[in-house]
């Protein structure tokens, strides 16, 4: 995935079954953000892989005051890339099992 300066990682082991998974997001490179990051640390949250949209979570983070509106794209893309990777890994695991 493209280096957005915002890192999103799994906050728990993915058992490949649960649709809801814990993720952790933090800013690795504040210079890549358009606005100054308030150094809040790592933000942990749960994400529903089947029913949620990464951009909605990014919007909620902005409304909660973690990021400025101008950085919604970078935050949304960072979550989206990680979610795509998790889904890809799950699909690959299923294919290998078959």
């Amino acid at each position: 995935a493209e280096n957005t300066g915002v890192r999103v990682e799994l906050a728990e082991e993915d058992d490949g079954k649960k649709s809801s998974i814990a993720l952790k997001l933090w800013v690795e490179d504040p210079k890549k953000l358009k606005t100054k990051y308030k150094d809040n640390g790592a933000i942990e949250f749960t994400f529903d892989l089947e029913n949620e949209v990464p951009e909605d979570v990014a919007q909620e983070m902005i409304e909660s005051g973690f990021f400025h509106e101008s950085d919604i794209k970078i935050v949304g893309k960072s979550i989206k890339d990680r979610v795509a990777l998790i889904k890809w890994k799950r699909e690959r695991t299923v294919l290998l099992q078959v």
């Binding site: 890192r7 990682e9 933090w26 690795e28 809040n40 640390g41 790592a42 933000i43 942990e44 949250f45 749960t46 979570v57 909620e60 983070m61 409304e63 909660s64 005051g65 973690f66």
Partner: peptide
């Protein structure tokens, strides 16, 4: 613990904790 919790109006829970040192170095 220094973890803080923020609950968004939509009901989502954000838990804020310090970024692990090892992860910052792992770039």
């Amino acid at each position: 613990s220094s973890a803080a919790q923020v609950v968004h109006s939509a009901g989502r829970r954000f838990i804020v904790s310090p970024v692990p040192e090892a992860r910052l170095k792992d770039q």
